[in-house]
Structure formats: C-alpha cells, structure tokens
Design a protein around this nucleic acid. Sequence first.
RNA 1: GCCCCCGUAGCUCAACAGGAUAGAGCAACUGCCUUCUAAGCAGUAGGUUGCAGGUUCGAGUCCUGCCGGGGGUGCCA
Length: 556
Amino acid sequence: MNPRKRIQNLISEAVSRAVSEGLLPPVEVGDIEMERPKRREHGDWSTNIAMAVAGRVGKKPREVAEAVLGCIQDDPGLLSGVEIAGPGFINFHLSPATLRNVLLEVGRKGPMYGSSNTGKGRKVQVEFVSANPVGPLHVGHGRWAAFGDTLANVMAHCGYDVEREFYINDYGTQIRNFGKSISARYLELLGQQVEFPEGGYAGHYVTEIARRIVAEHGDEFKSVSEEDRVTRFVEMEYPRMLESIRETLVKMSVDFDAWFSERELYDRGEVSETLDELKGDGYAYEKEGALWLRTSSFGDEKDRVLVRSNEEPTYFASDIAYHHDKIRRGFEILIDVWGADHHGYVPRMKAAMAAMGYDPECLVVVLGQLVKLFRSGEPVIMSKRTGEIVTLDELLEEVGVDAARYFFLQRSHDSPLEFDIELAKKESPENPVYYVQYAHARICSILNYSGISESDISDPKGVDLELLGEEAEFELLRKISELEEVVEYSAQKYVPHRLTGYAEELASLFHAFYRDCRVVTDDEGLTRARLFLVSCARRVLAVVLGLLGVTAPEKM
RNA sequence: GCCCCCGUAGCUCAACAGGAUAGAGCAACUGCCUUCUAAGCAGUAGGUUGCAGGUUCGAGUCCUGCCGGGGGUGCCA
C-alpha cells in the first residue's frame, strides 16, 4: 500500500476513535481528501478534513483537528511527524525510511514504475489526427498526434486497455474537392484555361501531383468527362496521400492500431442501418424533404439534419454510425480529439449518443487550440487559402521529433500553442527538451564513470539505503514518489502536458543533487547508495520521456 | 444576438476535485568549472491573477455582470 492510502487509513481510524471516545459527534467523512502541500515545511501530505467537517459537527476546525490528531496511532515507521497548521490542516511528514523505500519500488517495477490499475482494464479508444487524406499534415496535426499518442501512453500506464485510431474521411465533399483540384491543375498543365474549383486545395503539392500524372499518363484523361476524371484522380491519389500521412506519423513516432475508413462504413451498410434504428426509435423524422435527428430532446440547441433533401447523408450521419460502431467494438470510453473550431459539434454528437441509447458521458471530446508558428519571435505567415503552410514533415526535418513532441506537449490542449522553430532547434538552456535529456545523459555519464554496471547497481541487497540522508537526496526521493499521481491525474483529466512539467522538476532536483552530493567517492557504501539513487532517477526520467515519446539519450 | 474557450511577472506558460506566503522557464542583473557532462548550479529583481460584485472558515479556481482576444452558431466538413 502506498503512503497516501496508509495515511488515509490512519485518519479514518482516528476519526472513528475520536467519535467513540466522545471527542466528536458521529460524522460521516466520506473520501478523505489528501493533497501535496506546496511548501516543504507543510510536510509530504496534508488533509483538510478538519475544515471540511467542522461546520457539520459544530466545532472550530482546529478543535476538530486536535481531536483527530490526538487519536492518530502511527503506522510504525511510516511517519516522522504530524502537526496541525494554519486554519486546521493536518500535515504529515513521511519518515526517511518511507522515502527511501520508493527506490525499492523503482527497482522492482522498472519501466512500469508509475503504473497503476486505476483503469481496471477498461477498453478505451483514442481517436486523433483523423486528417482528411487530401493534403500533407500541418503543424496543428502534429500537436494532436503528440497529444493523442501520449494520452494513450499515459492511460495504458494507468491500466486502461487503449487503442489508437485514425478515422479516414475518404467519402464525401472534401475528397471530391481534392479530385477536382487535381483535375483543374492537370488541365492547366495541358494548356487549358480552367477556373479553380470552389473549396479546392490550392497548395503547391496539388500541382506536383498533377505534374506527376501528366508525366506518367500524358493527356490520357483530357478528353473524359470531368466527373470521370475527378473520380479517377481521387482513386489514384488519395491512397498515396494517406500513405504519405502515415509516413509522417511514423516520423512523429505515432503508431496507430487501427485506420478506420468512412467509405467502408457506408459500404458495409452501417450508415443506413444506424439511420433505420434512429427512425425506428422515433428519434429521426422527415421534414421538408430531409431527415432530421431530434437532438434538441437531448440538450442540443436545435434538431440536426441527417440526410439532405438531395438524398446525400451529412457528415453527422456517418459520424453517428461511426460512434455506434466504436461502441459495438466494445470500447467503454471514446476519446475524440478535435480542433477547437469543431466545438459547436459536441452537443449534437453527445445528443446522438443519447439517442442511440448510450451514456453521453462515455464520449469524451477533447478540443484543441491552434499552433502558432514563430521563428526567432517573428510569426510565420501561413494562409490556408493560398495553401502556403508549413507541413509537419518540414517541421520534423528542421527541429527533429524529440523537440517537436516535447514542444507540442508543453502546453494545455485548450490554450493556443506558440511554437518557436528557432528555439526548438537551439541546443541551449532556453530549450527545455535538452534540459531534461541532459539530466538523463549526465546520470549515464556518472554510471559509466563509476565502472559498475547498472544491472549490478540495481540489486538493492548490496545497498545500504540508510546512508542516504542529505536534503537534496530526500528532495529527489520525494519527486520520484510523485510519478504515479502525476500519471493518474494526466490520464483522468486528459492533460498529458503535466508530464513535461514533472520531467523538468525531476531534472531540476537531480541537477541540484549533483551540485550538493558527489556520487563516486572513496566511500564505497555511500557510492553504492548514491549510484542506486541516481540510477533510479535515470529510470524514472526514462519512463517519463518514454510516455512523452521523446528519446532518453545516454550521451549529449 | 446566443453558445464555448482564454485573460496570471516584460515574454511564454504552471498552479492537482476551492486550500496555507500564486510558481517555473526565457529575457535582465550578480556569482560558481584543477574533482562524476557548465546543455549545469546558486542568488537578485519582477504580481491588486482583466474589472466589479457575490458564495464561505478560505477564491486564480465556483456564481453573476462587464471589458478584451479567439472560435462556433449551415440541408459544410
């Protein structure tokens, strides 16, 4: 049992003892809230239970705290002190032995350190990126790639059964516009005057595609109908585009478990099947020649169209069928990562879940804000209209995957990200990626210098942990002990960026330790104890960097 | 108009389900390499958390109103 739970038990036992001794009136305390105090002198763990309960028992918070404190019977060896502070907090200080024991857990769990079973094997699907296969990924996609992948890592570490999925919008207007755009460029290259299609893709890559078609097929498609030419180009080119997207994602170290095609959803009849079910349940109805879903009965502002009067299903219709399919595949939690510009879509999708008879809560939509690119403080001008964008490939080429992923994961998903390309490239202290990686490399260097192999060090039997007694050592131990909470919080709140903060704190405490404590000395016992400590710190850094998808270099 | 997100140090951002004296990094200034990586460390300075109310033992965090920025509000995706 971890110290947090042991302390919670001490408190609840103390409360019942205080009640039976008549110091407190009978009171239901429920879950005992535990927090990490911000200030060191407030101990390792703190509870506000006295303040929370004070009103209900008609006593002052400090009186309640004293009653509880008086009834606490220490779990032997766990604590070195308990006291009441401030308005009525009860603060707990872990004993040195408890802190040192965290190293044994790191040694035991290795790469699984920080993992837990809070997810209880629940099936989770994280769907992210899901870019239309009509152009290269841009830097915004890069942010969602890093976010989704790390969120999946973090949830897996918490004991969820996680799958990563990419939804391919290979049906409908967008893919058609892609074909039309290629067609227009193709005809231009063959010397015809054509108007560029409305909603077409103006990027230079489209012209490159057309040029390649001309080179390979000449004017073969010049005389066929526009309709046929567009269809032909779509069939020829979207699989290639999808393949290049896949390659870019591989460079981002993102590996999807599933690629789900919208077109196949139609081909299997799942869209019409879903619509029939909704009609059968009375949630879909005809009006003005279109089919509508009664989303307003489930909290949406108004009803939404499923099938237009021209018989074309909307994107919404296939999206419902898609989510229906996800549930039928057994996923209990569906996480959709969408751009913030889709936020108006959330209530209707939740409503659709409810209409299908599912709990809307099982759908979690994470909305992400934009990435603004900078170069040495100057904004990089991009225009969607003219197609002048910086692609994810170009960014990766320039800054590398480690810096890219780290930068994407530094900020909360709901605030816009400023990404400075020059800063990401800099191998200097301004760049936090290197700060963290440097701590890892520095430890490797110490281990190497010691001449003792790490596998030898990690056997705690030959180590006397009691030799660890410096404040800098305890600080490091405390931070190491926090990983599980950080990982759990990141998973529960869908905030994987917390990990970058943790990594920097851990690195910083290691660097401070390095200043205060020399590891390799003539004192063999102390050397072994400290080698064990830094080896554990290294492994924890490696775990965190691994979750972030960033490499942990041995040398820099 | 209505809905959603954001507003915290000069800049970029943290702040765990409301907690104790709001924290980092960068930029600025001052020190520290004959000893395991100076891509490092230590220190100084920097704030009425956009504004005004409210809720309570306690508010950056919750509620109301206002100001400012972004997004949405389609038989588009």
